[in-house]
């Protein structure tokens, strides 16, 4: 007799239990909504990268400040540019940048953390001092400093965010790797003669990567916030290129006469963060195997 655990939010079904991670997220109620939403957003961002209804960056002052209509779904901005095309075109920049920063932080953190946790000694001490130093600065402060000194710009923004973000992942990965030598499952593998590299690859790495992955997914919202916030202040994406935060910054001057300028990028940000949060919560629920 096979006793299966039923988890909250997971309907017990007669069909085969969902075993792959993706399928389990799909079975999770909020995870499914998040997955659908994020697939749509990624698709839109990909299309917006190659094609938009109008040129997103070309001003046409004759058409400035037109409210939403059949020809301009979300209206036009103060320079007569189509807001829908700009939102569409900015998607790959905003979402892509957040994804890039998180992926780099994740990889650096994973590598540094596991190395540090497994090697211990001087390497560990030095690495963790560096982590402490980065984490001694509140989030964004380091980014402000780096941008202030290197100057504004999209590339500098990415560098600044990666430099201030990786330490969180490194610390988590290290805390999971350190002392893993006495973990029962790893000890058993060691005693049965499995090689060190195999143990690291099969026992240690997947678990740590999953935990860091959940953390990165849940951090997507604050990363979008940082990127659009810094662009809002003019430190990130430079005009004429469209970015959701930068669009918000231009639009607030015209709120009285053109509220759609503010609302469209805000909703774009809301939807992308929401989809990441939904997936993140589902991932967390699904990967947290509760002890009996």
């Amino acid at each position: 007799m096979l006793l299966r655990l039923t988890r909250p939010n997971e309907q017990p079904t007669a069909s085969a239990p969902a075993r792959s991670l993706l399928r389990r997220v799909w079975r999770h109620k909020s995870g499914r909504i998040g997955l659908i939403l994020s697939i749509l957003l990624v698709l839109l961002a990909a299309i917006g990268y190659v094609w938009t209804p109008y040129d997103p960056d070309l001003p046409n002052f004759a058409l400035a400040m037109k409210p939403p209509s059949g020809t301009h779904l979300l209206g036009t901005d103060e320079m007569g540019r189509d807001v829908f095309s700009r939102i569409f075109n900015a998607a790959h920049r905003s979402i892509g940048a957040a994804f890039l920063v998180l992926a780099c932080s994740f990889l650096i953190g994973l590598f540094v953390g596991i190395l540090s946790g497994l090697m211990g000694g001087l390497v560990d001490t030095l690495m963790m001092r560096l982590v402490d130093i980065v984490m001694a600065l509140p989030s964004l402060v380091l980014a402000f400093a780096i941008l202030g000194i290197l100057g504004p710009g999209f590339k500098n923004l990415l560098v600044a965010l990666i430099l201030s973000d990786w330490a969180w992942y490194a610390r988590l990965a290290r805390s999971l790797a350190i002392g893993s030598g006495t973990r029962p499952d790893i000890l058993t593998a060691k005693m049965s003669g499995i090689s060190f590299s195999r143990i690291v690859l099969t026992h240690l790495l997947p678990g740590i990567a999953t935990k860091l992955g959940v953390m990165a997914t849940l951090a997507f919202g604050s990363m979008i916030g940082a990127i659009s916030g810094l662009s809002f202040l003019g430190l990130g994406v430079q005009p004429p290129h469209a970015e959701w935060g930068a669009m918000l910054s231009q639009s607030r001057l015209y709120f009285d006469i053109a509220p759609w300028l503010l609302l469209s990028p805000a909703i774009a940000i809301l939807l992308s963060v929401l989809s990441a949060n939904l997936i993140g919560h589902a991932l967390r629920d699904v990967t947290e195997v509760k002890k009996q």
Partner: peptide, 14 residues
């Protein structure tokens, strides 16, 4: 070969 107290911790659960 060892056996431990908490079988959940002794297996790679995934």
């Amino acid at each position: 070969m060892p056996i431990f107290q908490d079988p959940s911790a002794s297996l790679p659960l995934s």
